[in-house]
């Protein structure tokens, strides 16, 4: 901004212009930093990312995705479970020994903390359940969101 551009303005407007410019620059810088952080700031890797850029065998990582339908299998020892985490394009088998959180179910999100084994099985030492954005009573389970919306509309009308 040159002097001649601001000369004609009232001080009030001059402050407004300068502050707006500063604000735009600040927000731009912040968003840019956030964008640059997008990989580092992610809490977990998706199965496709883990497969394409396999972590070192002894490196602790987090794997997150959906628990594949029908994939949870309890092992004979009673405390180990095996299941498959998928993200729509890739899937990774996971083995976990311990107590799973209450929301750990098939078809729902999960974050597994552990290491990638040499045999391609992810060995988790901790499981976290990830909830999705849908809040739905038990009775409406199995209905799609569109069906629910229609039923609600019908009861309201």
């Amino acid at each position: 901004m040159t002097d001649s551009a601001t000369k004609g303005l009232k001080p009030k407007h001059q402050r407004l212009v300068l502050l707006s410019l500063a604000l735009v620059a600040l927000i731009g810088a912040g968003l840019l930093a956030a964008w640059a952080l997008r990989n580092q700031a992610s809490y977990f890797y998706l199965p496709s990312e883990i497969i394409s850029e396999a972590p070192a065998p002894d490196q602790g990582v987090r794997l997150g995705g959906m628990v594949e339908m029908g994939s949870i299998a309890e092992q004979p020892d009673g405390t180990t479970i095996r299941f498959i985490v998928e993200d729509g394009t890739a899937e990774v088998p996971v083995s976990f020994t311990g107590i799973a959180p209450a929301l750990f179910v098939e078809g729902s999100g999960v974050v597994a903390e552990g290491k990638m084994g040499a045999d391609g099985v992810f060995v988790a030492d901790n499981l976290l359940a990830k909830h999705d954005e849908n809040y739905m009573p038990k009775e409406l389970e199995g209905m799609t969101r569109e069906q629910v919306r229609q039923q609600v509309k019908a009861t309201l009308e």
């Binding site: 992610s42 990830k130 999705d132 409406l140 969101r145 629910v148």
Partner: peptide, 20 residues
């Protein structure tokens, strides 16, 4: 932007994933 443990927003402009 980031993979997070917290779920995505349930209420966005004119849309809700929360049952009435």
């Amino acid at each position: 932007w980031w993979n997070s443990l917290h779920q995505p927003p349930s209420i966005t402009m004119g849309n809700s994933a929360i049952d009435p």
